[in-house]
Design a protein around this nucleic acid. Structure first.
Lengths: 91, 91
DNA sequence: GTTGTTTACGTCTAACGTAAGGATA
DNA sequence: TATCCTTACGTTAGACGTAAACAAC
């Protein structure tokens, strides 16, 4: 079964949606406010950030202590994302 | 039916998938080869490019004469896409 | 108890593949 | 006729919302 199953193992391609979500969360440091800013509910945001971290293979947030904070990698990545989105957003 | 239909009219957000498709087509100037390079069939590529042009509100390809060519806007956009993808791809 | 995040689950959009249709040389 | 692009259509993955559970203060 399954003749044409030669697909190539796509590595869960990074998409701008994830970057937009990340910037919102990273700037608000508050999932609910970030979601509101994005115009969605809170529930999709959490999985999206896990997805992003998994794709990058890096932890971006420090969720300890009932408070959301950025890791060092997260801070660096935030700068990169802002640059990319500043380029793409006007389109 | 349809209780919570308050969605906000998302303007078809631009995604990296479309930029990747566009770069492939713009560099190959051949939908079939572009599709092969992208690891997909030819059929999704055509709608994707129409989608991109509609989102941008600009014509990127000149499909006349049974030959695919870039418009001036397409050439400019190609440069921008390469820059963005060069930044994002390593992630 | 309150505030804030995550998980479960059903719905719906949209991206893909298969296959047929058009158009140009 | 041969080559290339587009359209039709059924399937499937994944993004969202509702709602409930969980954790820290």
């Amino acid at each position: 079964m399954n003749a044409g199953q030669e697909r190539g193992k796509q590595e869960a391609a990074l998409e701008l949606r994830l970057l937009r979500y990340f910037v919102a969360v990273a700037e608000e440091l508050h999932f609910a406010r970030a979601a509101e800013r994005l115009g969605v509910e809170q529930s999709p945001v959490s999985p999206a950030m896990r997805n992003l971290e998994a794709t990058l293979g890096v932890q971006l947030f420090d969720r300890s202590a009932h408070q959301t904070r950025l890791t060092w990698a997260g801070q660096v990545f935030l700068g990169e994302c802002r640059r990319v989105l500043a380029t793409v957003e006007p389109w």
